Computed example of a mutant assay.
Amino acid sequence: MPYTTEEGGRLNNFAVEPKVYQAQPWTAQQKVRAALLVTGVLVLVAGLMAIAVGVS
C-alpha cells in the first residue's frame, strides 16, 4: 500500500486508485435490452399505481 512518512514519523496511507479506461459506445443489442428494461419497469410502476388506486 502506498504511504508517506510525515513529520514525527506518522504514516499517511493513500487509497489505491483504479485503472481509468474510456467507455465504449453501446451496441445495438445493448440498446434493445435497455429499451426493454425501461419499458418493463414503466409497465410495472403503472401496474402498481393502478393497484394502489384500485385498493384505495
Rank of each mutant, 00 (worst) to 15 (best):
A15Q: 12
A46E: 02
V55G: 00
R10W: 06
A34E: 09
K19G: 07
V45N: 06
P18K: 00
L44M: 14
T5R: 15
Y21P: 00
A52S: 08
T27K: 00
W26G: 02
L37W: 08
A52W: 01
W26I: 02
P25C: 07
V20A: 11
K19R: 01
N13R: 14
T39L: 14
W26Y: 11
V16S: 13
V43Y: 05
F14H: 12
N13F: 12
V41F: 07
Y21D: 04
Y3V: 10
N12Y: 10
T39K: 04
M49D: 01
N12V: 14
P2H: 06
Q29W: 09
Q30P: 03
R33A: 11
V43I: 15
V45E: 03
G54F: 02
V43G: 05
L36N: 10
V20W: 14
V16P: 02
G47L: 13
A15N: 13
P18G: 12
V41R: 01
S56A: 08
K31G: 02
A50F: 02
A15L: 14
Q22H: 06
I51R: 03
L37I: 07
Y21S: 12
V53K: 05
P25T: 08
E17M: 12
A34H: 09
E6D: 15
P2D: 07
A15W: 00
V55W: 02
G8D: 07
Q29T: 14
V45G: 05
W26N: 05
L44N: 06
T27H: 00
K19Q: 11
E6N: 15
V16N: 10
L44A: 15
L48E: 01
V20L: 09
V41H: 01
T4Q: 10
T4F: 05
G8T: 02
Y3S: 15
V43A: 15
R10H: 08
F14T: 15
P2Q: 08
I51H: 00
V45C: 13
M49R: 05
T39I: 12
P18C: 08
G8N: 08
V32P: 00
Q30W: 06
Y21Q: 03
S56G: 07
V43C: 13
F14I: 14
L36K: 04
Y21V: 05
S56D: 00
A23H: 07
A35R: 11
N13I: 13
V53I: 09
S56H: 05
A52C: 04
T4I: 13
V16L: 13
G40M: 04
E6Q: 14
L37Q: 09
I51S: 01
L42C: 15
A28R: 10
L11F: 06
A50H: 03
M1L: 12
E7H: 09
V55F: 00
L37A: 10
T27G: 03
N13L: 14
V32G: 00
R10Q: 10
K31A: 08
